[in-house]
């Protein structure tokens, strides 16, 4: 009986199963190189997904995060060009600041101008990508520019046995723990869940939709800014036309695989984390077993479909057909 299980456990089952299957089918994944590849890939997706989660809990969606990541990455690269000796904390602040402002712009458009979230972020997906070109003068950030303080985030870290846990992964773990605490304990974030579950009911309780949108899109932008640091630390280079392209879809997929309903109201950090881990593991598996680049996207897509399907069957509330066609009338 899946519906007797606590929601957090129930939502964790599909991504956990997916991870288990990958490890069973691809034993080479346990090798240090594969694990390190996962560990360096995951933080970027994880940070994006944490931000996206709150937007989805509010019943909205933010498809502009890939472009925000691109914009923040290029802004950080240009900053490092002129300030090669900047401490790493300042790098975080620059990228996070750019991301936050971009996210607040999304939030203001949705919350105050009442433009639907999908429409807004499709438009800003283009606009922020444009800003990525403008801020960099359409040039590429090369490895010589990216300071060691940033690349060390991905290449150095805390050694555990023969593995190294990179600093950026530790940052992502701390960020996830902080957000997990915040969504459970901050009254304002509890209101996001209420709003996403029933917007009309939330209005009756005096919860303002404008401030909810400003909050969740602002946070989504902020986390995209953090993800930009992860991106630059891992690749040590960035081009305005490619940095973060398509990552918004992976982030949304990770959130949905982690059991959040696209209609809003539910979503937990831990299962979403497993969703991110599954996507990272899947990505690396395909490379490890040598699925050619021509097949990779197709296979990735099919696995994604299977995971989403499993998630749907695991949730009893999505299976009831009685919910339709029973609108009450005279």
């Amino acid at each position: 009986m899946t519906n007797r299980l606590p929601a957090a456990v129930r939502e964790s089952i599909p991504p956990a199963l997916g991870i288990a299957i990958c490890f069973l089918l691809v034993p080479k994944l346990a090798a240090p190189t594969a694990l390190e590849s996962i560990a360096s890939w995951m933080p970027m997706l994880w940070l994006l997904a944490i931000g996206q989660l709150l937007v989805i809990v509010a019943g909205a969606v933010d498809v502009s995060v890939g472009s925000i990541l691109g914009f923040a990455t290029m802004a950080l690269g240009m900053f490092l060009k002129t300030h090669p000796d900047a401490p790493v904390a300042l790098s975080f602040a620059v990228a996070a600041g750019v991301g936050l402002v971009a996210g607040l712009i999304n939030g203001a458009i949705v919350g105050y101008l009442k433009v639907p979230p999908l429409v807004t972020t499709i438009a800003t997906l283009a606009s922020f990508r444009g800003l990525a070109f403008m801020v960099s003068g359409a040039t590429t950030i090369t490895g010589s520019v990216v300071s060691d303080s940033v690349t060390n985030l991905a290449s150095k870290g805390v050694p555990i046995g023969s593995y190294t846990v990179p600093w950026i992964l530790i940052f992502a773990i701390l960020a996830a723990l902080a957000m997990d605490f915040a969504v459970k304990s901050l009254p304002k974030l509890r209101s996001v869940y209420a709003f996403g579950s029933n917007a009309e009911g939330a209005f009756r309780r005096g919860i303002s939709s404008s401030s909810i949108y400003l909050l969740v899109f602002g946070l989504s932008g902020l986390f995209a800014g953090f993800a930009a640091v992860a991106y630059l630390s891992r690749f040590a280079m960035a081009a305005p036309g490619s940095a973060g392209v398509g990552l918004e879809l992976s982030a949304i997929a990770a959130v949905v695989i982690g059991g959040a309903k696209l209609s809003g109201g539910t979503g937990r950090i831990f299962p979403v984390t497993l969703g991110c881990l599954f996507l990272s593991v899947l990505n690396v598996s395909l490379a490890v077993i040598g699925v050619g680049a021509d097949w990779q996207l197709l296979v990735f897509g099919l696995f994604l479909l299977a995971a989403l399907g499993a998630n749907r069957t695991a949730d009893p509330s999505k299976n009831s057909s009685s919910a339709t066609g029973s609108r009450k009338a005279a």
Partner: peptide, 28 residues
């Protein structure tokens, strides 16, 4: 026809929008 918050616990339904706080945090 009541309009509850289906995804929230009953306790959270009661207090949505005005949760009891301690030190600014939700007093569960």
């Amino acid at each position: 026809e009541p309009t509850p918050f289906p995804d929230l616990s009953l306790a959270e339904n009661i207090f949505a929008g005005s949760v009891p706080r301690r030190l600014g945090l939700v007093d569960r």
